[in-house]
Design a protein around this nucleic acid. Sequence first.
DNA 1: TTTAAAATAATAGTATTACTATCATAAATA
DNA 2: TATTTATGATAGTAATACTATTATTTTAAA
Lengths: 223, 223
Amino acid sequence: MDFKLSFSVNEAVFLRNPESSELGKKIVKQSIDLIFELGFEAFTFKKLALEVGTTEASVYRYFVNKHRLLLYIISWYWFYMDFMIDFQLQNLADNKQKIKTIIQILTHQLPESSGSLDYNKRFLNQIVISESSKVYLIKDVETINKKEVFKPYKDLCAKIAAVFSSYNKKYAYPKSLSSTMIEAAHHQQYFSQHLPRLTDLSAKNKHDFTSRFLEDLVFSVLD
Amino acid sequence: MDFKLSFSVNEAVFLRNPESSELGKKIVKQSIDLIFELGFEAFTFKKLALEVGTTEASVYRYFVNKHRLLLYIISWYWFYMDFMIDFQLQNLADNKQKIKTIIQILTHQLPESSGSLDYNKRFLNQIVISESSKVYLIKDVETINKKEVFKPYKDLCAKIAAVFSSYNKKYAYPKSLSSTMIEAAHHQQYFSQHLPRLTDLSAKNKHDFTSRFLEDLVFSVLD
DNA sequence: TTTAAAATAATAGTATTACTATCATAAATA
DNA sequence: TATTTATGATAGTAATACTATTATTTTAAA
């Protein structure tokens, strides 16, 4: 599977579109590596510039600050999930199977070499798990939300909620179940890796554990 | 209801016990007000010192950095939830009622003037909702976790999980359901307040909405 | 092809953050 | 009363999170 994912982010996220230049692409790619390595708090534009082989000032021409850069990365993930769901559900008729597929997509690593961008998918996955909530858990959510930057997340949430509603037309909280499931997919993976006593992780890997837990949860709620 | 909540936090969280002095108490109290006002990212020890009427150096004698101070505040919340659950469940025999009570405690504001500490409960509640995940979503979780600083969270999670297990002995993921429910309690309140399209918030307030959603979810899963 | 526009590099500078260190003084305790 | 302990006052440092300026290179338009 190889394809060109056209990724249109809200202009409020960046100053100059990083996909429009080689430098921009390098900035995003390297930031994924560096945020993975250092964690978001210790990640700085100065360190990134050094890694990319450019200057701090040049990075600032693409993103006003590191938060927006993280938002760009996470938006890419939300778009990608949305796309993958469309792609993988297209030949499925059964709603139960659709939900199972969505859970697999959310809890398992992004396939390497997909979307034709050479981001490190393993790193991106870890960043989503550890850092994604930091893009909205900020003091100025309201302001930034007005610029529609969270639309990709809301669209993804709505898409999954729609499948839940098709499966069970009477269920009253499809969107809350959807956002809870997305967040839990990340949390449970994080916990099973770092704070396992907050989970029931038995054996095997955190991906399989999380998907089994979520399948059980979602179908219990919807059935 | 008035009582003295003896709050024993792990020594790794602070340098000097803030409860042991007037200054220490003021530091914690004012930090709750200031983190609420500024958000954790913009909150600094310098601003806090100014507010408290002391110096930056004095604040540093209590906590190594602002992350540990947040951890102290959130630990207090975990302890408090744990205590409240014990307190409120003591005369309940019915497991269903126990679970309902737990959900009410988790989703509704801490009662004002309780625990005999005059923290602003409304602010504390907001801080828990917006900032609590930042105490463990950090690069050095493993290191800090070794010092047992997350024990209050694990204990709380285990306590709730035990009630789930009493209610349904066959359920396979009590701890994951417990941590998912705790996290969802915060997320759904946050979303319904700031990003309502990620929820099914109908009318009324975010507390009632969240508790209704969680009750439905938990009993569906356990029944 | 030249010319103008745009992007980048190189460099500098500033306010704030996140600390650490020193020393004097005040308060508590032995 | 002596002495430990806590706090205040002040200073200092490296790093962060930017902004600004000018020179140089690359790209696009005339």
